[in-house]
Amino acid sequence: MLDFIPSLPIASWVDDAVKWVTNTFEFFFDPVKDNFGWLLDISAEYLSMIPPVIVILLVAVLAFFMSGKKLGLAVFSIIGLLFIENQELWSELMYTFTLVLYSSLLAVVIGIPVGILMSKSNTAESIIRPILDFMQTMPAFVYLIPAVAFFGIGMVPGVFASFIFATPPVVRFTNLGIRQVSTELVEASDAFGATGQQKLFKVELPMAKPTIMAGVNQTIMLSLSMVVIASMIGASGLGRDVLSALQRAEAGAGFVAGFAIVILAIIIDRLTQNFNKSNQ
């Protein structure tokens, strides 16, 4: 019945668009690929050079003090990290950590200002919200393709893909946190003659901080969940071990690498949650 509308060549339009962007912005993508790629590699290399014992101790001490001098998380960190070292996955762990670190940093540095913008303008909110929905629901594999076109294969497109997937929560939570600040406090700050900037930094951000930190926590967890997918385009780390176990149907190796990711996730999650609590 709808035959009179010819099938629209959307797919080829998108192909053309990706090609055009790749060629036109080569001058931007290439240096990013080289320099950022170098930074990621060097960071992971340096982290791997630190003896595991020292890293484990540092994490344990950090866990002990951040969780209010309780032993639970510290003990868990020691056992978990020793397990990873024992399974000879240490340098993979460092690569995964680097990937998570940089993609979360990027997400937070860009996401919080975008969230602030969104909270201040209803127009901005109505434009940004569907973009965030798109970023979160579009299957991750789909944007691996342009990521490779832009940045080649390796860690950089991995960070890019993680960034796309992990940024929405921190943007949303920042927006929510600022919008939730009670009218009376906003009025109080206005009534005493605060400028917009003073209001933001002296009232709104401090009030929204717990919510924003919850968003940061979610962002870190999501970028961690991307490590396996990122390994499909050549990002090193624990994800690659999971992927190769999958390809060779090695249940045991897959379990070990997957378990290492879980351990890392729990440690990072509890640490960032405590960071939130200790600052309230």
Binding site: S182, E184, E187, A188, M207
Partner: peptide, 8 residues
């Protein structure tokens, strides 16, 4: 303010 409007 009615509900004090203090910054917690």
């Amino acid at each position: 303010f009615q509900k004090f409007g203090l910054f917690p």
